[in-house]
Computed example of a mutant assay.
Amino acid sequence: MTILINEEKIDFTLENEKTFTDVLSSVETWLNKAGMTTTRIKWNSSYIFPKDLSAVGGTPVSSIGMLEFSASPVTLKRSEELASLLDYLVKLKNAIIKFDKKILSELLPQFPDAEETLAAYLPDLAIEGKDNITEQLSRLLEGSTPEMIGLLKEKEKTTLESALSDAIGILGAVSSCLKANNGVLSSVSIDELEPVVARLGDVPVLLQTGKDSQAMEAIAKFSEMAQAFLDKAGNMFSTNPKGFSIDGKPFDEYSRSLNELLRELVGAFEKKDYILIGDLCEYEIQPRITKIIDKVKGSLSA
């Protein structure tokens, strides 16, 4: 059996997997530990959809041949789920306000699927002074038809519209956070980071001239921005980490080595080892982060 993840062959050691379903479960567990999730599966050149699993799930491992997985960061999948849910809720709210029977007849049968996703994100959430949002929507929309919506009393209709507005507002905020955490690097973020990186080169001089507070400020600013930059760069190259290497090392490995140096820098500050602080900033950390920036800039302009 051959397994590819994002077109990269992986060494997968069978343990207790006997069937197609067992293998899917094990691969998904492995991906989840790496912060990833399956987005698409291809088996011997044919895509497999959830509806197909009951028919092929019992296939023995010896008959599988090749399995190809497409995977993406969990946050990206959540972001896409939320975007779809928000789009649905906004359309539903507008259709209810306008009492558009045609749109309602299309949207209301989709509510059970939307309800499941909604419950996952807002399981016990209630606005102060109101009932649980998901429960309100379920009570008023489950099994509803356009005609039933038209028969709602004014108070019930107001409650429904209010619950939809609350859900849209809260989920919109969650979606914005996910997009920020999973954002694509831009030249603006790099332009903001580069002068902060350059400032690291001044740290030894600042320490030698007694300007400890300025040195600490420069390092604190760098640490904050560098971590956000590394997280976004990691997301950017997570679908094909082997395709992005520095000094012969995959991005993840190179990034970890930089994080280890940052931890060493914190330890040096605690010990007030100013010589080590200066050496780390000037000869270790600054050159490494500069190489990552150059690689990312090259990828963005490609």
Rank of each mutant, 00 (worst) to 15 (best):
A228M: 10
A180N: 05
G57H: 03
G58D: 11
I149L: 05
K232A: 14
S238A: 15
A173W: 10
P123E: 08
A163Y: 11
T2D: 15
I64H: 01
L300C: 04
L82M: 13
N235S: 01
V184K: 14
P60C: 08
T38E: 06
D113A: 14
E135Y: 14
A198C: 00
D247R: 03
K157S: 05
A34P: 01
A218D: 09
D100Q: 03
S189H: 05
T159R: 13
V296K: 06
R78N: 10
N6S: 10
A55V: 10
I285W: 04
N32K: 10
I48Y: 01
L206I: 00
L261K: 11
G234N: 13
K130T: 10
D124K: 08
K291F: 03
I292A: 02
Q214K: 10
I168F: 14
S189T: 06
I10T: 00
S70G: 06
T159V: 09
F222I: 12
M36V: 01
S213T: 09
S165F: 05
E154M: 06
E253H: 13
P195E: 07
K291H: 04
E106I: 10
I133A: 04
G298L: 05
G298I: 00
I133W: 09
L82N: 08
I246G: 01
M225V: 02
N259Y: 12
F222N: 04
E135N: 09
G210W: 01
A198L: 12
E28C: 05
L300F: 06
V196L: 03
G65V: 02
T209E: 12
E116H: 15
M1P: 03
S84L: 12
V56D: 04
E17D: 12
E253L: 14
D87T: 07
A233T: 15
L280D: 03
L261N: 08
E260N: 14
L125K: 07
V23P: 03
Y121N: 11
A55K: 14
P250V: 02
N259L: 09
S63R: 14
I289Y: 06
I275L: 15
K153I: 03
G267Q: 13
K211M: 07
E68T: 03
C177K: 10
E81A: 01
I289Q: 11
S186H: 01
F99W: 12
A163H: 12
M225Y: 07
D202P: 02
S257A: 04
G129T: 01
